[in-house]
Design a binder for these strands. Structure first.
Lengths: 224, 224, 224, 224
DNA sequence: TATGAATGAGTTTTCATTCAT
DNA sequence: CATGAATGAAAACTCATTCAT
């Protein structure tokens, strides 16, 4: 009485067969999205990669964009949703080290999310649908910045950071990490064996600069 | 019996007609690139816009990508090449105001360059060729960061900024501007009438935070 | 352990469920055929409209065409079958008025049947099957003409029409009505508010011409 | 300096190469339209039949419908445009024979035009574009009826036909011919060796009936 | 060397039909 | 028998590239 399952799902059990293939398609799309840019993905490639016939897509999604946006949102939600948990506890250890750990967390999530996000820029229709989907989800545009701001605020309340609006500070830290990530993405040739070490030095110096500021008359060596 | 010049160039004199048409195509491509995304640009549109026949392109460039990359590089070179001149003179006026002006200059150039650059992500082949072209040109990847670093170094020598590596500071400032710009590009709906003012407030607060740092025990109100 | 009846027929009793669903599909197809053209009807639309699963069709009909032809024949049979009863009684009232009423009856049935029939032309396979089905049914091609011929014959026997073969007369009347109907179908824009009146004037003048003939030496005004 | 000609046109000379392929496509479409119904024609079939690549169509026409409508109009124009010339001269020979000749002319043109026209019914979009094209051409919807009306009028002025509106008479004659034609088109099996003879008898009896009318008190034998 | 029509592989999407359940 | 998802062969249309002139 149930319809025939897709060949590719033969042998699996326990799933709701109605949603199993839908999920399979989303998963396949995410896989491909991690390799190629959105706009280079064809429905044919998708079907081939999912080991499924050309038409299935349209049994589960309104059109190609519908599947793509769904996969994109799912991807973003999972990657960005885990971000807050990767931030260190405010008050623990030492402030600078904490900030470095924050910066590394940002770098990780940006590394995950940036390639896909950048690919969206050239597909205005897709971008629009993606942003609408994000806004109607609990995933707001502040999903990544806000936890950082909260961390800084918490450290302020603990007296471990000075007063002042933490949001520009978060922007500075976040932006610097975006830049480092983008640089590496654009120029993979620069990635060397000692890459991690170098990168971490970058992170640390950025954090220190942010902590002590550029203005003269302060002794940054005090906390190093 | 010299070869027939393209119709669109009839009447011009003095130029080498061969390079004239090449330049004309590059200029047209740049014009279109400022309007549409790279991936949506067809050779036909290009030919029509250049008032030239569909095939000429292949007499002057290896293929469509070759023309596009050339136009992209040219565009980047001009926009980014003009950037240093838009930075204020170190030592003039007041340091904070100078930094704000630097930040605004960064925002302008990023606003010019980011949309096109982001569009490249979805065309991996193009992106690769673009990056190779950039590296073989004098236009290194530091084209935008280095002038900023120099400005900061100059202010340090004048004693108007504290000691320390100016490069992470430049990264922080630059990254924050990228973030602001990207936010506006992605969410044009957030652009309001008071947009300029808001944005400038953002810029100023970012600069102040960068100047005074996050560490406690410093009175940021002193210099505001 | 009798087979499960289709959801849409649950609760009905007394019918043979096998033929009930068959009839339900035919009825649904007729409904849709009255709205859309044959060639635009998909099996999916049919199944949805019948509130039945996509595959049932193939349990009761050889294929889509089989169902469609069956529905088409059924439709034609009912519309054309009702036609004789809509003709006026020979001998009643006045001959001209009776002929007008015949003409109107023809127009009605043609209006019902022509759109569907014309739509068949673009589906040669369907058309062929349809015609074969018609011929094997008691529904011959004379189904519409013959009753008209009989009416004329009856009026002849009553001495209210002159002698001569009534079949060409029926052809003339029928053909004129087909023309009027086709004209309106092809050019719906010509339909005005006073449409009914105009059309009826057309019908009347056609009937009068048919009654009195074109040959000279006859005073058509005598019977007007 | 001229672009490369289509392979299929190699060797021909004298034509304007720009319009040669356009005409070739129209001609091919007309050929196919004479065999298959409009809606069953695919762009692929068209290209194959024209011995031309799949895409050429779009170099000369906005889309498939554009080509089809153009072919349809061209076809109609040529077939229907020649119709008036095939009518006999009013006043020549004998009236009845003249009317029979008119009827035969109508039958010919209807036989040419009806199959194609009927196929249009199931393609509302195409039908609409076709009708619009017809109306903007000198080819009005009266193109076929009007010459017939004029013939009758001329015969009236010569005193060879009685008075009265000739238009309903034209409608009757035309409609009867449409019916005869449609019957033969729908039921090609009825076409026999003696077909022409039979058909001609039909035509003659229809014309006589039209001439003498149905009303009693007239002696139709007088003119037979 | 400029022209611009011809080429044909490639794109997204539809849909009649099948078939495991 | 009913179910309805899977199938895959089209469909219309696009576009980078070629090439006779």
């Amino acid at each position: 009485m149930s319809p025939r399952p897709a060949r590719v799902l033969r042998g699996r059990a326990g799933d709701d067969p109605a949603t199993a293939l839908r999920e399979h398609l989303i998963a396949t799309a995410r896989d491909l999205l991690a390799q190629r840019a959105v706009s280079t993905l064809t429905t044919r490639q998708l079907a081939r990669a999912a080991r499924v016939s050309d038409g299935v897509l349209y049994n589960h999604f309104a059109d190609k964009h519908d599947l793509l946006v769904t996969a994109l949102v799912r991807d973003y939600a999972e990657r960005a949703g885990g971000f807050p948990a990767t931030l260190p506890e405010a008050g623990s250890g030492n402030v600078e080290e904490n900030l470095c750990e924050c910066a590394r967390a940002v770098r990780r999530v940006v590394g995950d999310v940036l390639p896909t996000a950048a690919g969206l820029v050239s597909e205005p229709a897709l971008l629009h649908r993606f942003l609408r989907a994000l806004h109607s989800d609990p995933l707001g545009p502040g999903l990544l910045i806000d936890p950082l701001v909260e961390h800084l605020t918490a450290e302020q309340h603990l007296g471990r950071l000075g007063p002042g609006d933490p949001r520009p500070a978060a922007t500075l830290l976040f932006g610097a990490m975006v830049l480092l990530t983008a640089g590496e993405l654009l120029d993979p040739g620069a990635a060397r064996a000692d890459d991690t070490r170098d990168t971490d030095d970058h992170v640390r110096s950025v954090v220190r600069t942010l902590l002590h500021g550029l203005a003269p008359g302060r002794d940054p060596s005090a906390s190093s």
